[in-house]
Design a protein around this nucleic acid. Structure first.
Length: 288
DNA sequence: ATTAGGG
DNA sequence: CCCTAAT
């Protein structure tokens, strides 16, 4: 009777998180069966997984444990967000997208719009078009700043989400990082790489179907339309993958930004505590 | 057999 | 972690 009260290792937690993102919460026996996680969780039962998940979902991280690791919490959430962006091929008839998404509710630093990634994913590539349109139309030869681009796009009567300005911001930064835009001190302008093949066929996969003309042709042979269909859907899937990768990158970007904010906030909180302690001890604190 | 919840 | 009702 030895191993009761076994502490969860980081590896086990990771495996659990990965398992949940893959199979969904509640599919514990499945996660346990999955050869990908079977080894690391060999000492855990499906019920253990359930309990652990429940704990991870609640604990808003208390500082009691020598402020071990709270970032993993955020990273885990980020991982889930990214995974969610990927695992959303068929908007219907797929996994139950009701993941509780364990997140702190109390000291929550507002992860706000990060749940609209799927939407962003669909729009991000289009924004690129608008951005390039704006940059090529705007006069400033030295480049334009975010506001100029933002205003131009709005005047174009392009419908954009409320948080568009921020999306635009991260979008610009990313394009600059990819070398598709030149950035100098918050001013962006196009360069040679801006016009390279960026998803050439964004053509809508609507109705281009070539239906078989009646049943007159007894032997349509190997049917060219099949081939056509295949390449068409292949192209579509490529675009799809492209968009999803994009979504993940954006998600990571936003997440890193959030983590930074969280850390800064925490630092300030520490300062505040320190000040409070000193003040309550009757000390005179001067703030420069 | 398995899962969700309460203890 | 364990126990139990519910599916």
């Amino acid at each position: 009777m030895g191993n009761q009260k076994l502490k969860w290792t980081a590896e086990e937690e990771e495996a659990l998180l990965a398992g949940v993102t893959k199979h969904g919460p509640g599919k514990w026996k499945n996660i346990l069966r999955d050869p990908d996680f079977a080894d690391q969780l060999s000492n855990r039962s499906n019920i253990d997984l359930k309990d652990k998940w429940r704990n991870l979902s609640v604990a808003p991280d208390i500082q009691g444990s020598k402020d071990k690791i709270r970032t993993p919490k955020i990273k885990a959430a980020a991982f889930q967000l990214a995974a969610r962006a990927i695992i959303t091929p068929t908007p219907s008839a797929n996994t139950s997208l009701v993941d509780p998404l364990p997140r702190t509710r109390s000291s929550d630093l507002s992860i706000d719009d990060s749940c609209n990634i799927v939407v962003d994913a669909k729009n991000a590539p289009r924004y690129d078009g608008m951005i390039f349109e704006a940059l090529s139309a705007l006069p400033d030869a030295n480049g334009s700043d975010v506001n100029a681009i933002f205003n131009f796009i709005q005047q174009k009567r392009h419908e954009v989400p409320p948080n568009f300005k921020r999306i635009l911001g991260s979008r610009l930064r990313r394009l600059a990082a990819q070398g598709k835009l030149e950035k100098t001190q918050n001013f962006y302008k196009m360069n040679d790489h801006s016009l390279v093949i960026r998803t050439p066929l964004v053509a809508r996969p609507k109705e281009i179907n070539v239906k078989p003309r009646q049943t007159n042709s007894p032997r349509p042979a190997v049917s060219q339309e099949r081939v056509c269909d295949a390449s068409k859907s292949a192209a579509f899937k490529l675009v799809e993958v492209d968009m999803k990768l994009d979504a993940v990158e954006v998600a990571m970007e936003d997440t890193e930004r959030m983590i930074k904010l969280a850390e800064e906030a925490e630092f300030i909180l520490l300062l505040a505590k320190e000040l409070h302690e000193k003040c309550s001890q009757g000390m005179l604190v001067e703030i420069n």
